[in-house]
């Protein structure tokens, strides 16, 4: 299995997936670094721990605007490598079992997404220090970063996104191109966003809305996210169902 995953990583050499990894991992924290550098007073509330609003807002932007779209791009790039050149006909003649071939693709995708998340977490925390050097009034150095709360929220966002990962993986296996899965993904993302804004009671059942609901961030209509238990389970269930269905389609491929 590890050899098969290593083969997937070789395929990613010179691939545009690395642009997405860097953009996805650093996009929000870099933008926020610039914004803080320009006008920190707009973002800092005196007498409060500056880390709280800084970390929360970064994660909110990341879960709303970046991560769902990065999921679409990464899955599409990884699976479209085979669709584009029709290399399935070569891969499927290998002695490796089909579950291993599909599983290595899925694991590669999950490792890439986890890397993006890790880059986001590290850059978010590290970039607070340049902000402090430019604007000492932000007082980042005087407070402890809220590591555990931030880490727990990050794990929540990642878990709540697994439904999207499962569905997009299914689309990219079912349709032998990248265009249709991406169009479907963007359409569902927009629907998910609208539901999150207007109908949060419905949004809790829609996989593409779940990453937005990791916390009450005050954007949506007043909802108490704590009342909607089991969103993580729902997301994981969607993921757990999508993967075997993708495999069923994959084993019938000729």
């Amino acid at each position: 299995m590890w050899n098969t995953i290593a083969a997937e990583w070789v395929k990613l050499n010179n691939s545009s997936v690395w642009i997405w990894v860097i953009l996805g991992g650093l996009g929000v924290s870099l933008t926020r670094l610039v914004l803080y550098a320009i006008g920190p007073e707009a973002y800092t509330l005196l007498a409060q721990n500056p880390w709280e609003s800084y970390l929360n807002m970064n994660l909110t932007y990341f879960s709303l605007l970046i991560f769902p779209l990065v999921i679409l791009a990464v899955i599409s790039i990884v699976n479209n490598q085979e669709h584009r050149i029709d290399s399935w006909k070569v891969i499927l003649t290998l002695p490796n079992p089909r579950w291993e071939l599909l599983g290595s693709k899925l694991l590669t995708i999950l490792i890439l997404l986890a890397t993006i998340f890790l880059l986001f977490v590290i850059s978010t925390i590290l970039f607070a220090y340049p902000i402090y050097w430019i604007h000492p009034e932000t007082e980042f150095a005087y407070f402890q970063p809220l590591f555990f709360e931030f880490a727990s929220d990050c794990v929540k966002v990642f878990g709540y996104s697994l439904g999207i990962v499962g569905l997009q993986f299914f689309f990219s296996i079912a349709f032998k191109n990248s265009t249709f899965p991406i169009i479907l993904g963007i359409a569902f993302y927009l629907v998910g966003f609208l539901l999150f804004m207007a109908l949060p009671n419905v949004a809790v059942n829609f996989p593409y809305s779940l990453p937005f609901l990791y916390k009450d961030i005050g954007i949506s209509q007043s909802i108490d996210v704590n009342n909607f238990s089991g969103m993580g389970i729902r997301s994981c269930l969607v993921f757990a169902c999508s993967v075997p269905i993708s495999y069923m389609i994959f084993i019938t491929r000729r």
Binding site: A7, K11, N13, I85, I91
Partner: peptide
């Protein structure tokens, strides 16, 4: 069917890893 953005070596390396 080979990966166009990879070298001939990398394309064969993929199959060495698979096998």
């Amino acid at each position: 069917s080979f990966y166009p953005f990879l070298s001939g070596y990398d394309n064969l390396k993929i199959h060495c890893l698979y096998r």
